[in-house]
């Protein structure tokens, strides 16, 4: 559904993305995980066509985002890091505007009503966006992404600023959305990504450092675990005993911490 190939993005001399490639299959939930400044938002901005990559290619459902931007963009719903809201509009006006902007088809009021119910904002539709709390703004932003029933949803840290109850609600919602949409969502919280995603791409410093299922990722991380321990007794014997344990890669004696106690 989404193909990202060899993306490179330079801001002046700073390399924000370095040869990043990944693919997302239809109906899959992909988590982009990485620390702040790793390039998650930049990746999403490029995939949605807001920014252009210095190098590389993005295809949405086989359509190149630069060559056929209109067709490709109409398949994407995007919730940026900061929801793109007009403070002087009411929620209802805003969603109608987005509806027209995206040239969505179908019964407008009915569809918008469904979306509002889905993200639980039907009680604030008549209020001005600037008067809403952060959690509600975030959900209006999510509603905006859902307008027009896009086949791909790109959500940039959708749970930031929400309270724990809302976070679980949004997670459930995202999981529900995956039945009809392909979802890419970013976070810097591992547990969140593990809870929601089918597959995780870990980015650090603009590079892909892992691409695996949550279970696979957990396994590969635990494979490299290292234990430092103190043992009392004959060092030679302790090393021999430890080496005999199943799955032990190597045992090393470091130093004598106290008389008769070794690290």
């Amino acid at each position: 559904m989404i193909e990202v190939q060899h993306l490179t993005k330079r801001y002046g001399s700073k390399l924000a993305l370095d040869d990043l490639s990944f693919q997302v299959k239809e109906g899959e939930i992909l988590g982009l995980l990485g620390p702040n400044g790793a390039g998650k938002s930049t990746t999403m901005n490029i995939v949605t066509g807001y920014l252009s990559a210095t190098n590389g290619q993005v295809r949405i459902d086989g359509l190149d985002i630069l060559e056929e931007p209109k067709k490709a963009k109409s398949k994407i719903g995007y919730l940026p890091e900061q929801p793109p809201l007009y403070p002087d509009m009411t929620v209802e006006e805003y969603l109608r505007f987005v509806w027209e902007l995206k040239g969505a088809k179908g019964n407008r009021e009915e569809k918008l009503g469904e979306i509002c119910a889905q993200v639980m904002i039907d009680d604030v539709t008549g209020r001005l966006i600037k008067n809403l709390s952060k959690g509600y703004k975030q959900r209006v932003g999510l509603a905006q992404a859902l307008v027009g029933d896009p086949s791909v949803l790109i959500l940039d840290e959708p749970t930031v600023g929400l309270d724990p109850k809302q976070i679980t609600e949004i997670r459930d919602l995202i999981r529900g959305l995956a039945k009809r949409h392909t979802v890419v969502f970013s976070s810097h919280i591992l547990t969140e990504v593990q809870a929601v995603c089918d597959r995780i791409v870990v980015i650090s410093g603009g590079k892909k450092v892992a691409d695996d299922t949550p279970a696979g990722l957990a396994a590969s991380m635990s494979a490299g675990r290292q234990l430092d321990l103190l043992a009392e007794g004959d060092p030679q014997q302790v090393v021999e005993l430890l080496s005999a344990i199943d799955g032990m890669a190597s045992v090393e004696r470091l130093e004598e911490k106290e008389p008769g106690v070794f690290a």
């Binding site: 901005n45 066509g49 807001y50 995007y78 793109p84 809201l85 007009y86 987005v98 905006q144």
Partner: peptide, 14 residues
């Protein structure tokens, strides 16, 4: 300033 350009520029509008 409102970052709403992200909405406009990622919409299917030229």
């Amino acid at each position: 300033r409102n970052k709403t350009d992200q909405l406009l520029l990622t919409s299917p509008v030229s």
